[in-house]
Simulated assay, not measured.
Amino acid sequence: MNALTRQRLDDMPPAQQAGILCNDPRFQHFAATRCGLSGQQFSASAAAQYLRDICQIDSRRTLNICARANTRFAVLRTEFDAWAGKIASPR
């Protein structure tokens, strides 16, 4: 892969996806909102802690090896994508 080719997020390992997501300001806002802090935004480290709590893991690397954690992460990503308007919200 050369410098001009970007890898799709969905093609990356889950732990790498999680790292990128936690650095996304939209996800930081989503995580804060989900924690009852509407109108606020978490830092990347607070967003990472939120993700670890939701996925019930100690390290994002666990997403690469634990099917249950990876399923929880997939649900979280879907909820974030719906919240962000990337996909339609379920009715």
Rank of each mutant, 00 (worst) to 15 (best):
A69M: 04
C66F: 01
C66K: 13
A47T: 09
A48I: 07
R61I: 00
S59V: 05
G85V: 04
I87M: 04
G19D: 07
N2V: 12
M12S: 01
Q17M: 00
C22V: 15
A82C: 03
M1W: 08
R61T: 01
G36I: 13
Y50P: 07
F30K: 02
P13N: 09
I54G: 04
E79K: 08
L76F: 09
Q56D: 15
S59L: 09
C35H: 08
I54A: 03
L9H: 08
R52W: 04
S59H: 14
D10A: 04
L51C: 12
Y50S: 05
P14V: 12
T33A: 12
R68I: 09
R8N: 06
A67M: 06
S43K: 05
I54H: 03
F30S: 03
R6Q: 12
P90C: 06
C66D: 15
R91A: 12
C66W: 08
Y50C: 09
N70G: 00
A18Q: 10
P90T: 10
C55L: 01
I20S: 01
T33W: 13
A46L: 08
W83E: 06
D10Y: 00
A74K: 14
R6F: 13
R61F: 03
N2W: 03
P25A: 06
T5P: 04
C22P: 09
L9W: 08
M1L: 13
Q17V: 05
P25Y: 05
L76E: 13
R77H: 01
R68D: 13
S89R: 06
C22Q: 11
R72S: 12
V75L: 13
R6M: 12
L9Y: 07
A15I: 02
I57R: 10
Y50I: 08
N23V: 00
F73I: 07
A82E: 01
I57A: 10
A32V: 01
Q28L: 00
S43N: 02
V75T: 12
R60H: 07
R77F: 04
R72I: 05
R72Y: 08
A32F: 06
L76C: 06
T78E: 15
